[in-house]
C-alpha cells in the first residue's frame, strides 16, 4: 500500500462528511420500504447504503489516525485560488444559463475565463471564445437540434428568418 501516510488539509472533514452522508443514505433507504421483503424497492438501496456507511466509517477512522501534513495549506494544496475562482464561475454560468440563454452566458464565461487564465489580452480571448462558440453552436443546435435554453436571444425566430431568407420553408 502506497497510500499517503499524512493527512491533507480538509481530508478529515471530507471523510467525516462522507460518513454522515452515508448514514443519512441508510436512513433514507430504510424509509423506501423498510424490511418488507427481499424484493422490495428498498432492499438493494439499503444494502448499498449500508456498505457505504461501513466503508466510510473505516475510512474516517483511518484518516483521523493519520498525522496531519503540517506543510500543506488548504488554499494552496487542495483548492488553489484559481480553481476556487473557476468553480465559482462555473456555478454562476450554470445558474445564469436558463434565464439569460445559452449564447450570451457561454460567451461571457469563455471570454472571462480565457482572459483570466491566459492573460493574453482582450482581442485574443474574444476571438477564441467567439470562434469556438460558433462551432459548438453549429454542431449542437443546428446539426443535432439540441435546443439549448434560449433566454433573452430569440434564436428560433432568427433562424426562421434566415430560413425564409434563403427560401427554406415556404408556406
Amino acid at each position: 500500500m502506497t497510500e499517503d501516510q499524512t493527512r491533507k488539509p480538509g481530508e478529515a472533514f471530507f471523510a467525516v462528511l462522507l460518513s454522515v452522508g452515508s448514514i443519512a443514505a441508510v436512513w433514507n433507504a430504510y424509509g423506501i420500504s423498510g424490511f418488507e421483503s427481499l424484493s422490495s424497492p428498498g432492499a438493494f438501496p439499503m444494502a448499498v447504503a449500508a456498505t457505504m456507511a461501513i466503508t466510510s466509517i473505516i475510512i474516517a477512522v483511518r484518516t483521523l489516525q493519520k498525522p496531519a501534513d503540517r506543510h500543506a495549506t488548504f488554499w494552496v494544496d487542495v483548492l488553489p485560488i484559481p480553481a476556487a475562482i473557476i468553480t465559482v464561475f462555473i456555478v454562476l454560468y450554470a445558474i445564469a444559463l436558463r434565464p439569460l440563454g445559452f449564447l450570451p452566458t457561454s460567451l461571457i464565461f469563455l471570454f472571462v475565463t480565457i482572459l483570466l487564465l491566459s492573460r493574453k489580452g482582450i482581442i485574443f480571448s474574444a476571438s477564441v471564445s467567439v470562434i469556438s462558440l460558433f462551432f459548438i453552436y453549429i454542431v449542437f443546435r443546428l446539426v443535432f437540434s439540441v435546443l439549448m435554453p434560449e433566454g433573452v436571444v430569440p434564436e428560433r425566430e432568427i433562424l426562421a428568418f434566415f430560413g425564409n431568407l434563403f427560401g427554406g420553408f415556404t408556406k
Binding site: 425566430e157 432568427i158 428568418f161
Partner: peptide
C-alpha cells in the same frame, strides 16, 4: 443586420 433581423422577426412573430 442580424439585430435588425432579430427585431423584425420578434415583431412579426
Amino acid at each position: 443586420k442580424i439585430l435588425g433581423a432579430a427585431v423584425a422577426a420578434v415583431l412579426t412573430a
